[in-house]
């Protein structure tokens, strides 16, 4: 069933400081979207609003699966999220983390799928180590496994290649190309190589002005 996402007049203020204003945008399946902007421009804020973990000051985000609107209570089942702000449980091993996540989501723990993901991201040999012993790059790889474990329909990637080596980046790009066949992929990044994967780019700086009606799409 096709997944779509619509941002309607989204604005965000932190106190009196305007982050962005009047974002109207549509995201559809089989495409990779980029959110670009300088440091502190609000890329992460927008991804959090899309993921439903942060409320916009104004406007609405509508997620639809098969043409039917998804209620906020169920939204987390459809979203895979990777972000520098995402921290997994350090006291558990990689496998324990993933087992707990599956149980809390209420889905069966698919050992084969998890093993494949661990293998793809080169963590299979360390899957029984606690995350505390992982390097920052390994933790970043683990975040991807967390995001992909439940086959999400919307994959939100905030600075996806930070802390990753070249091999890790290649794996991420390969996964993005696979996932986009059946999901919406949104990448918030400054990295040129990340944004080169995108079919459309939403430039945050276009939405910085008050009463801004800008709605530009750069292909």
């Amino acid at each position: 069933m096709p997944y779509s996402l619509e941002l309607i007049n989204i604005s965000k203020y932190f106190g009196r400081r305007l982050i962005f204003n009047g974002i109207d945008y549509q995201f559809t399946e089989n495409k990779v979207y980029g959110i670009a902007g300088s440091n502190g421009s609000g890329k992460s804020t927008l991804t959090k609003i899309i993921a439903g973990v942060l409320s916009p000051s104004k406007g609405k985000v509508i997620h639809k699966n098969g043409g039917k609107e998804i209620i906020p209570e169920k939204l987390h089942n459809y979203i895979g999220f990777v972000s520098p702000y995402l921290i997994l449980y350090d006291e558990f091993t990689a496998k324990e983390n993933l087992q707990f996540f599956a149980k809390i989501r209420g889905i069966p723990f698919d050992e084969n799928k998890v093993d494949d993901l661990l293998m793809n991201f080169g963590l299979h040999k360390r899957s029984n180590d606690i995350l505390k012993a992982y390097s920052s790059g390994m933790k970043q790889r683990m975040k991807f496994i967390f995001a992909l474990q439940h086959s999400p329909k919307l994959l939100l990637l905030d600075e996806p290649t930070s802390n990753l080596d070249d091999e890790g980046k290649e794996t991420v790009y390969k996964i993005i190309n696979q996932v986009k066949q059946s999901a919406v992929v949104v990448i918030a990044s400054n990295e040129k190589s990340d944004l080169q994967l995108c079919d459309e780019i939403l430039e945050i700086s276009d939405y910085k002005r008050r009463n801004n009606n800008a709605n530009k799409r750069i292909g």
Binding site: V53, E73, H76, Y85, I87, L88, Y89, I104, R105, F146
Partner: peptide, 20 residues
């Protein structure tokens, strides 16, 4: 304090978290 709130928000509905 550990920064895992976001993780919990991404895997469970608010009512699940509250009752847990």
């Amino acid at each position: 304090e550990r920064g895992t709130t976001l993780t919990l928000q991404l895997i469970a509905s608010p009512s699940t978290v509250f009752f847990g």
